[in-house]
Simulated scan of single mutants.
Amino acid sequence: MYPRKTHQLVQSALESQAAVVLLGPRQVGKTTLALDIASEQPSVYLDLEREADRQVLVEPDLYLDEQAGKLVVLDEVQQIPGLFKTLRGQIDHRRRAGFRTGQFLLLGSASNVLLQQSAESLAGRVRYIEMPPLQLGEVGTDQLNQLWLRGGFPDSFSAEGDQASMDWRLDFLRAYLERDIPALGPRIPAATLRRFWTMLAHVQGGLLNAAALAEGLGVSGQTVGRYLDLLVDLMLVRRLQPWHDNVGKRLVKSPKVYVRDSGIVHALLGIGTIEGLLGHPVVGGSWEGFCIETLLAAAPTGTEPYFYRTTAGAELDLVLRLPDGETWAVEIKRTTAPKVSRGFHIGAEDIQANRRFLVYAGEREVPVSNDIRALPLARAIELLSAH
């Protein structure tokens, strides 16, 4: 089992909150982590996709009253939407009985569904934590290329070979399209959604062009928006918003879109080896998306991510607004030559960035100019983690 940063985050949250909601796509390791935490204390685990476990909660108050003082782990909790009102009453009742923290650990794989269900019922009683796939600091910097190629889903990353990893990811895609997404309710043909997902992979990191996507799929722009919302909600796609502060410039207003796990990008495009990846047109977008997800996983809680682009050509791949108010400008390049474009200099000045970095494929930290440093990805993670 890989040591996960999320493990400490969840443990700390349970020490200060009655309930924690752990979000993340399927197969990312939520259940393994939850069972590990549960094994260290009196606990009970229910998988709400299993009919037998759902039957236990037909009379939820009766069952949960008996579990007072234990950590109750409820997996795939979005399967029983009405449960959140019961949990609110349970938390309040337990507080009066002296059990104030560490009561419920709720796991889910559809973020907006869970947030909407729990926001009103559990307001002030719950903390939300998103669990990303495996990160570079968790597997070791010597595994960077394998992590980039295979992605961070544990079974994919740790497969015996590249082909076994690819087979796992193809099965993962098939399961989502044919079983998991229909179970949430949307009636979308699996072949159509697969084509849409693949189209996003082809333009990894590009500006959202709903009209072009709609034309390619033979559907309306509104339908494309619905498909995109679904994949964002399932934490499989990131919609990176443009920097919106008024800086007196004509800003690009469309979001950029990334398939969040690089291994899924490569599976959708049939890229099975690092050699094949380095020679593929998507290599730049894939590296950019991989670095963005890695940096955001390392950033302090509450960090807001954006990109910046003006119609005049100023551009920043990633802008991070940190909780302390600092703004970091980041350029990402799959190159060993540490140079930044003129557009990066202009963009960093436009937003008055406090710190300016180039994340590149080299192994040393080097100055690019007086106020810009080129960093390996691992060093950039260290700086964000320490902030």
Rank of each mutant, 00 (worst) to 15 (best):
R4C: 05
S12N: 15
E15I: 06
S16H: 14
A18L: 07
A19L: 07
K30G: 01
L33Q: 07
S39G: 12
S43M: 07
V44H: 03
D47F: 12
E51F: 13
D53V: 01
D53C: 04
V56C: 04
V56A: 09
V58C: 09
Y63A: 11
D65W: 12
A68V: 09
G69W: 09
K70I: 00
L71C: 05
L74S: 04
L74R: 10
V77E: 02
L83P: 07
K85D: 14
R88S: 05
G89E: 08
D92C: 11
R94T: 00
R95N: 10
G98S: 01
F104E: 02
L105P: 04
L106F: 07
L107G: 01
G108D: 05
A110W: 00
S111R: 15
L114P: 04
G124V: 03
V126W: 12
I129M: 03
L134D: 01
L134F: 00
Q135L: 01
T141V: 07
T141N: 03
R150N: 01
P154I: 03
S158R: 14
L173D: 07
R179C: 06
I181R: 04
I181Q: 15
G185N: 13
R187C: 06
A190C: 08
R194N: 14
F196P: 01
T198W: 03
T198E: 08
L200T: 08
A201Y: 15
H202W: 11
V203A: 11
A211Q: 11
A212S: 14
A212Q: 13
A212F: 05
G218K: 02
V219P: 00
S220C: 08
V224A: 07
G225W: 09
R226A: 14
Y227L: 11
D229Y: 06
L231W: 13
D233E: 11
R239D: 14
Q241F: 03
D245A: 15
N246F: 09
L251N: 08
L251D: 01
V252M: 01
V257D: 00
D261P: 01
G263W: 02
V265D: 04
A267P: 14
G270M: 00
I271F: 11
E275G: 13
G276D: 12
L277D: 10
G285A: 11
G285M: 09
E288G: 12
C291F: 13
L296G: 06
T303E: 13
Y306R: 15
Y308G: 11
R309K: 13
R309P: 06
T310N: 15
D317N: 14
L318A: 08
L322E: 12
P323A: 02
W328A: 10
V330M: 08
A337W: 15
K339Y: 14
K339D: 12
F344V: 05
Q352Y: 10
R364M: 05
P367A: 09
S369M: 06
R373N: 03
L377Q: 12
S385Y: 03
S385N: 05
